[in-house]
């Protein structure tokens, strides 16, 4: 029986977790650049917001350069839960790979 409280990991969320664990904390635009076209500017922030609601990532404001005006960037980093879910996905993917003839 499915349980709504159980963590899930769609493909784009998995990609973001992989990028955050490989490259370290970064902001949305940089994730789009690092994904080489798999993530889109128009949707990456919605995915990040959903992941933050799930507890997979956390964010903090980056201090602006001195003299700069505007909004401070939001820096995202993977949480312990996010890393655990990603590691669990790797275990499952390995099991499925064993089935490939």
């Amino acid at each position: 029986m499915a349980n709504d409280k159980q963590p899930s990991l769609p493909r784009k969320e998995r990609l973001i977790l992989e990028l955050l664990t490989a490259e370290g904390p970064t902001y949305g635009l940089q994730l789009v650049r690092l994904s080489r076209g798999e993530l889109k500017l128009g949707t990456v922030y919605a995915t990040l917001a959903r992941m933050e609601a799930k507890g997979y990532v956390e964010s903090e404001r980056e201090p602006l350069p001195s003299g700069a005006i505007g909004l401070p960037r939001r820096i995202f980093r993977a949480t312990g839960l996010g890393i655990r879910v990603l590691n669990a996905w790797v275990v499952l993917a390995r099991e499925f790979a064993l089935e490939v003839p």
Binding site: G28, L29, E52, S59, A68, G70, L71, R73, R74
Partner: peptide, 16 residues
């Protein structure tokens, strides 16, 4: 706060 501000912040950062 979750969607629009981070996007605009990155927009401004890229311009900067």
């Amino acid at each position: 706060a979750a969607l629009i501000r981070p996007a605009i912040a990155d927009f401004q950062g890229e311009l900067r």
